[in-house]
């Protein structure tokens, strides 16, 4: 049988491929969708890609775009600084749930409130992957991690953060907020593309959370991984556009 080789996005940086993410990790799918979105929008030359610490740092040389690495949680202010200094650049910040919702939550919250014209993509895999699978703000109730070995107990550790929902509440008109999943690729690519388009149009803050997989730390096989993503995670974290100014008015 003939195999169809999937096309490589033009904006990928080939010397850094194959990439370094674990087998079954959702980062590769997310970054492919991002690469295709960059290609479709034709913005490779003016894109600045910034990545956080955590697994997202492995994407530091993923694209044939200029990029910078920051600290855990600090990608948001670095992107804001770049955008404020050079509004003509397209700034895309890439981070995990720990970086965005925990250690960098004040930056996420306040840049959303200020409606900063940056695009942030936050990968939610319900744990801290790089540091060895600790509980994250997004860990589901009952989920076992290294720091919730008996399952996350909401009584003592609270409920999982629903990021896009709170960001949608915080942002003014013009912001774009969505949640996608690596299990629905076309939608993922469309929502990421919209989040970048929203920045290009200068409408406001643009944010996409991407539900993703971490079989290494979940300790799941392929079936279990996909089931957890499609059933458990999507149930708690509904997928779709939450807020979009695109296609409205005369824009």
């Amino acid at each position: 049988m003939e195999m169809l080789a999937p096309a490589t996005p033009k904006s990928w940086y080939l010397p850094s491929k194959p990439h370094k993410f674990c087998p079954g990790c959702g980062h590769g799918i997310t970054l492919k969708a991002l690469g295709e979105a960059i290609d479709e929008l034709g913005i490779q030359q003016e894109t600045i890609f910034g990545c956080d610490i955590g697994c997202s740092l492995l994407a530091w040389n993923f694209f044939a775009c200029d990029s910078t690495q920051t600290h855990h949680g600090r990608t948001t202010p670095v992107m804001v600084g770049i955008k404020r200094a050079r509004p003509e650049l397209i700034t895309i910040g890439y981070m995990g749930d720990g970086g965005g919702y925990s250690i960098g939550s004040q930056h996420l919250l306040n840049s959303a409130v200020r409606n900063e014209k940056v695009t942030l993509i936050l990968v939610n895999n319900t744990n801290y992957g790089m540091t060895g699978g600790q509980m994250a703000p997004t860990t589901l109730p009952g989920q076992i991690t290294e720091t919730s070995p008996y399952g996350r107990d909401p009584e003592s550790t609270g409920y999982p953060t629903r990021g896009p929902e709170f960001i949608a509440e915080l942002t003014p008109e013009g912001a774009y907020v969505a949640r996608a999943t690596v299990s629905k690729y076309k939608q993922l690519r469309r929502l990421i593309r919209n989040a970048i388009r929203n920045q290009i149009e200068g409408n406001g803050f643009s944010f996409v959370e991407v539900l993703s997989t971490c079989p290494t730390n979940w300790r799941t096989n392929a079936n279990q991984t996909w089931n957890f993503l499609e059933e458990k995670m999507e149930q708690y974290f509904p997928v779709g556009e939450i807020k979009s100014p695109l296609g409205k008015g005369d824009k």
Binding site: I48, T68, V80, I82, K83, R84, A85
Partner: peptide
């Protein structure tokens, strides 16, 4: 330009970003 940030972490990192942007 000027931006009042949410804290000093942000003030420092936005400064880093702007400097990287030249």
């Amino acid at each position: 330009g000027f931006l009042q940030t949410e804290d000093e972490l942000s003030a420092g990192f936005t400064t880093c970003g702007a400097v990287q942007a030249g």
